[in-house]
């Protein structure tokens, strides 16, 4: 069974239709890249999967492990294993990162009927993961993302991905605002999380990120639809020829 099935999805924001019938199937263990020019609807797709308010689905459906994702609140989706790594992670002053991580992890576990982590077990887990991502402990005491550099914010997203162990990770423009070193650290973190039971959807404007996170499939979006799908070589082809051909085709 497919992990994620997006079928003929049509989405409006206010009165404007952004997605015009998008279809995408992602199986367990696969890494899919979604590429496309600005305004093609890539981020809209990621927001609709995560359940961000403000989008109206007028047609089509999204199934996650066979269940209707659109019927679920964002927190239910998270507990079921959907994780969106934000393009611009928000800053939350006054909420310590450690408090946030523990509250979120335990909320997800509670929703799944699992026991909550004890403080020592939680601390041990966070220390292990943050060490591997080169996240200093004092960063975890600060407010969520407050005063973090672009690279630190993205590493914090990857840290959460590692802690929450979702089965579907959607990475929305993970490379935006990152220099090459920061990108490499974040990508290494993501690659360490690749596993047969976990799928990833990597949304990016540039091919560069895909040198570090090598996808199994590449889809090109234009004007609210997937206009071409292929293997990882499609990304290189795009780098050479640009998006113009697809904008005409769409």
């Amino acid at each position: 069974m497919a992990l994620l099935e997006v079928k003929d999805l049509k989405v409006r924001v206010e009165e404007r239709e952004i997605l015009h019938g998008l279809t995408l199937t992602v199986n367990e263990g696969e890494v899919h890249a979604i590429m496309g020019p600005n305004g093609s609807g890539k981020s809209t797709l990621s927001h609709v999967i995560a359940g961000k308010p403000g989008y109206e689905v007028t047609d089509g459906q999204i199934l996650f492990k066979g269940e209707d994702l659109l019927e679920m609140d964002p927190e239910e989706r998270a507990a079921k294993g959907v994780f969106l790594a934000f393009q611009y992670p928000v800053e939350i002053p006054g909420v310590a990162t450690m408090t946030f991580l523990r509250t979120a992890l335990n909320a997800q576990r509670k929703a799944r009927g699992e026991s909550e982590y004890s403080t020592p077990d939680f601390l041990k887990k966070v220390r292990e993961v943050s060490k591997s991502l080169n996240i200093p402990q004092d960063m975890l005491k600060r407010g969520v993302n407050v005063g973090f550099s672009g690279g630190e914010k993205k590493r914090n997203e990857v840290l959460q991905m590692a802690l929450f162990e979702p089965s579907l990770c959607i990475l929305d423009e993970m490379d935006s605002g990152l220099d090459i070193d920061a990108l490499r650290i974040a990508a290494d973190g993501v690659n360490a999380l690749r596993s047969p039971g976990r799928a990833m959807v990597v949304i990016t404007h540039y091919q560069r990120l895909l040198n570090y996170i090598v996808p199994d499939f590449v889809h090109v979006m234009s004007k609210g639809r997937v206009v071409k799908s292929g293997g990882k070589d499609l990304a290189l082809e795009l780098e050479a020829s640009g998006y113009t051909q697809f904008e005409d085709a769409a």
Binding site: P74, E75, I92
Partner: peptide
Amino acid sequence: SLLFYLKARGLPEKQAQALLIQAFVGE
């Protein structure tokens, strides 16, 4: 945007609100 971020991480609405309210008065 803060509420959505917290909900997307698994916090139910009331719990997400509570965390942000605590931060607001915490200062």
